[in-house]
Design a protein around this nucleic acid. Sequence first.
DNA 1: CGTCACGTTGACTAATTTCAATAACGGTGG
DNA 2: CCACCGTTATTGAAATTAGTCAACGTGACG
Lengths: 240, 240
Amino acid sequence: MLSPSTLQIACSHCNLRELCMPVDVTARDMERLDTLVTTRRRIRRGAALYSSGEKFNALYAIRSGFFKTRVTTPDGREQVTGFQMAGEIMGLDGIVANQHTCDALALEDAEVCEMPYDRIESLSHEVPALQTHVHKIMSREIVREHGVMLLLGSMRAEERVASFLLNLLQRLHARGFSEAALVLRMTREEIGSYLGLTLETVSRTFSKFAEDGIIEVKHRQVRILDSQALRAIVNAGAGR
Amino acid sequence: MLSPSTLQIACSHCNLRELCMPVDVTARDMERLDTLVTTRRRIRRGAALYSSGEKFNALYAIRSGFFKTRVTTPDGREQVTGFQMAGEIMGLDGIVANQHTCDALALEDAEVCEMPYDRIESLSHEVPALQTHVHKIMSREIVREHGVMLLLGSMRAEERVASFLLNLLQRLHARGFSEAALVLRMTREEIGSYLGLTLETVSRTFSKFAEDGIIEVKHRQVRILDSQALRAIVNAGAGR
DNA sequence: CGTCACGTTGACTAATTTCAATAACGGTGG
DNA sequence: CCACCGTTATTGAAATTAGTCAACGTGACG
């Protein structure tokens, strides 16, 4: 029988299960998967879940909260590589060289499920569905990054910002939030770094969208008045 | 005993082995890994190894030749996501949804080793070193893309071009080619797409580097006169 | 030896960054 | 509870970078 604390972190009882875990799994395999997550970790707003250079030990599934990942160079260049929310997996960058190559920072108080990598490897061996799932998660991240490259390489500022908003909305909606409003967890500067723009350009673009009646912006509260217009902005720029 | 044709495509006898395959493998496991590659495929210059939308079946290891990968959107936007050379693995994007999400096009006549994905999955199950290796390959691709995001999001044109040249040189050098010269296999337009610049800017930047005595450019032949200067250009721009 | 794709270069334009000033919050402590 | 301070955000004007449009070369290849 499961102890209360084990039960508390059992994936089989987690409402985020469909986001993190393979779906078509026998009861017996699910029981095994429940041993994947050894600990929950709380991360305070502003703190790092892991940092570049640290030894890689585990992957993390976000239980609650919001993160950014960023790469930095020795000479001080910096790039936000993504914003992560509940159900998403972090730490994949560390596998190749057994050490992390980016920082994961909590943008609000957060909780993550720690999955030791050696355990993932051995369990994958026993549970083929997990092996497939890990491959899919990594492949999904590669495809996501292709999308970011497309954004950074071929879109102008308005297209990038519209694309960014639509992406956040879509992911929040998949988690049961409204499609018509969102609260930004990050600063204009962080958005700018992610989008390859300055914070001023991000701010100006928000203002322009607001003037055009597409969104309403009050600090970090954004209300979407015309999501179709956002889509049109993204698509309009095709052919550069 | 191995037949001539099997032997011909055996990884154990391939001089690119260290690039594609796990290194610390028993003789017995190596024998198994030799069954991974079922076919060699020749791809003509300009032809696609796979295209976006096609069913995903296999990963490919480049045996010879040079590829580009690109993503395209329905509305005609396009972004080159990478240039691949001997020993590198292509097709990882297809795993997540069982279909390819980008095009892989040969920039010169090429030969690839086809590794059916279902075979990779079942063999990974038997040979842990292969499982680890697949994870590392995917993680490496994620880290590579972080680097591209840094380039696209934070570098100016000269920094991007310098960074591009250094990256190519380093990878070619790892394959036994000179550090002081290279032949570009792609057009200025393809370089521009990859770097988020127009072909004119790429051309002008090459010309400027040549004027400054950093490189010599004759069509697609590039000679590196001062690689330290290239490194300096990349590092100089830190702090945007 | 002509044609076509590729590459270079110039002049001009547009987009974004930079610099600067001001405003609005949010958290903290009196 | 309110005032203050530092951080975050907005906005304007000038500067800069890269893009666009256009003309011209040049090579490779049939």
